[in-house]
């Protein structure tokens, strides 16, 4: 990663719900090819940051660019894995169909997915080990399997930057390992992966880049340089004296 390009740039971003700021003047540069964790306490604005970058939420100030262009012009480069709880898993559809939804962006309005899209979706299912479940109704999948379906749906977009909102929430150990292996493979392919993450213990093991967030940005940089008690204490507000293995 020598002198790499900036994949995502956030300038002076402020986001508020009902005039109460949840993100305050965030400046952030995410270099291309990193596997980055966003950590911070509940209500720190982690999901809000991702949603604002992706244009789902409108900021009251500031700007975001993806490879130097506004998000609207760079949609094809970005894939998003929302929190698993954000959708109704009783929706009448199958695993394969959900993964196919990842191809809709490249199709644009009106045009229907065809054989090419189906093939891409099947390949993505294969990658996450869910091919045997392709015709299963999504409510018949376990939590870990649902998360893998969401991951496959992002993979099928074949993007350059992946945003994931708590992909390890409520999944079993097997799925967690499967997911992190896929994320590491993405980084190897020089993709940028940004993950909202909760488990501080696994940060040094899984990620090479980290952003500490608590309404304001506390720190961002390589895990080996900045993942320390000082930043943890600043972010979580308590004296954070757990020595985490690096």
């Amino acid at each position: 990663m020598s002198k790499s390009k900036i994949a995502v740039q956030v300038d002076d971003l402020t986001v508020a719900y009902n005039y109460k700021p949840v993100l305050w003047d965030i400046d952030l540069e995410i270099p291309e090819g990193v596997l980055m964790a966003i950590v911070g306490p509940n209500g720190a604005g982690k999901s809000t940051l991702i949603k604002s970058i992706l244009g789902i939420l409108k900021p009251i100030a500031g700007s975001v660019s993806i490879y130097g262009q506004p998000y609207e012009k760079q949609r094809d480069l970005v894939a998003y894995v929302p929190q698993k709880g954000s959708v109704d898993w009783d929706f009448p559809t199958t695993a394969l169909d959900v993964v196919m939804m990842g191809t809709y962006g490249s199709l644009g309005w009106i045009k229907r997915p065809g054989q090419k899209e189906k093939k891409a979706a099947l390949e993505a299912l294969e990658k996450v080990g869910m091919l045997p479940f392709k015709n299963r109704q999504i409510s018949q999948l376990s939590g870990g399997q649902q998360q893998r379906i969401f991951l496959a749906r992002a993979l099928v977009q074949d993007a350059s930057i992946y945003f994931m909102d708590e992909p390890f929430q409520g999944v079993d150990a097997t799925t967690e390992i499967a997911i992190i292996n896929i994320l590491k493979a993405l980084r190897k392919a020089n993709k940028t992966v940004i993950v909202v993450h909760h488990d501080l213990q696994t940060v040094p093991e899984y990620f090479d880049w980290v952003t500490f967030l608590n309404v304001k940005k506390i720190a961002t940089g390589p895990v080996k340089d900045i993942f320390n008690d000082d930043n943890l204490t600043k972010t979580y507000g308590i004296n954070y004296k757990v020595s985490i293995q690096k």
Binding site: M101, Y104, L107, I110
Partner: peptide
């Protein structure tokens, strides 16, 4: 015409928004 868009935004409005629908 809009079956795909209706399905996507009904199931996952967040993804629909990021994909430009």
């Amino acid at each position: 015409a809009f079956f795909k868009e209706l399905k996507l935004s009904t199931f996952d409005a967040g993804l629909a928004a990021t994909l430009g629908f």
